[in-house]
Design a protein around this nucleic acid. Structure first.
Lengths: 160, 160
DNA sequence: TATACTCGGACACAATGAGTCCGAGTAACG
DNA sequence: CGTTACTCGGACTCATTGTGTCCGAGTATA
């Protein structure tokens, strides 16, 4: 199992967007993180499609958070970028082979699938308990408050 | 994020192996589940490499569980088949770009990675709390005890 | 009205998972 | 004791998905 690397980029972008109330172009976010601008655009599009960020077109356009950072959870971002479906998919092999369980008896999901999904639920619950605001606070504590302030100024100014 | 489909097969095989104390060939497990014998062999090899099942070669060989079903957790199987590494990988983008965090300040992991890994830990913890014996018990309750008994007889007998 | 800048989706490439195959080794059997 | 038939084990090929790139449509600005 391997999570899409775009999730990391998207999360960092959300944290950075916390520091700006004016639209930030994708190119600027890409330069800030030193990643491919074209590919980052794809992740931002996913976030926009999910309604987490709003796209502003035109000359001084870019992306802005639609909600308060406190009301955007990691689960929202992961679902938007990595897809909403479950990672474990049940192919119902219990209904195949010489000892296939008859379809009548399959009113409840396969026990194997139930177990795997319960673990996934624990994962999602943990993700839903953390917000972008929590991350921003944590970054502040780790790198010092001056870091986000400097980024904020850089985002506002036109220079690279 | 997508989990390897082989995990499902491996789990079902472990449950089935619960019903037999004599070696079961991979071909028989494949026929029982109506899946590709060649591909299932790969998953069984992963389980054997991880020490969860023991391979017996020769004419009446096959696979047997090495430990009691109560002491084999879903996490063991998932780690064996799907790989032990974390699904979220941190590329340390905080150390890149114009506002890169200096390496000196990176004594602790990136806050983003910490959050994602904590969620993964919750997932692993949930998987570690469920054993193959639990699954077998659940299958018994769902499909009736006669199912596993029939399979047991079929595994022992030579007929298809 | 012209312009320059933005996003958005459509287009290639690479890595990983899915599936297959044949050879090495071993226990049973004559 | 030799033969045989059956087993696992690893090496190979193909399909799918993620990664990365590109150009065109649209809009606020000057």
């Amino acid at each position: 199992m391997k999570m899409s690397g775009g999730v990391e980029w998207a999360l960092h972008c959300c944290v950075v967007l916390t520091a700006s109330h004016t639209p930030v172009p994708a190119a600027k976010l890409a330069e800030l993180h030193d990643v491919s601008s074209s590919y980052l655009a794809k992740q931002l599009q996913s976030l926009a499609r999910a309604g987490l960020i709003h796209s502003v077109q035109g000359k001084s356009g870019g992306y802005v958070l639609t909600r308060a950072p406190e009301s955007i959870t990691l689960l929202d971002v992961v679902r938007a970028v990595d897809g909403p479906g479950p990672s474990f998919v049940c192919t119902e092999i219990r209904q195949r082979g010489p000892f296939a369980t008859p379809a009548d008896a399959c009113t409840t999901p396969c026990p194997v699938a139930r177990a795997m999904w319960s673990a996934e639920d624990a994962w999602r619950q943990a993700l839903a308990a953390i917000t972008i605001a929590d991350l921003a606070r944590d970054v502040d504590a780790t790198s010092g408050p001056e870091a986000l302030v400097g980024i904020q100024a850089w985002l506002g100014g036109g220079a690279g």
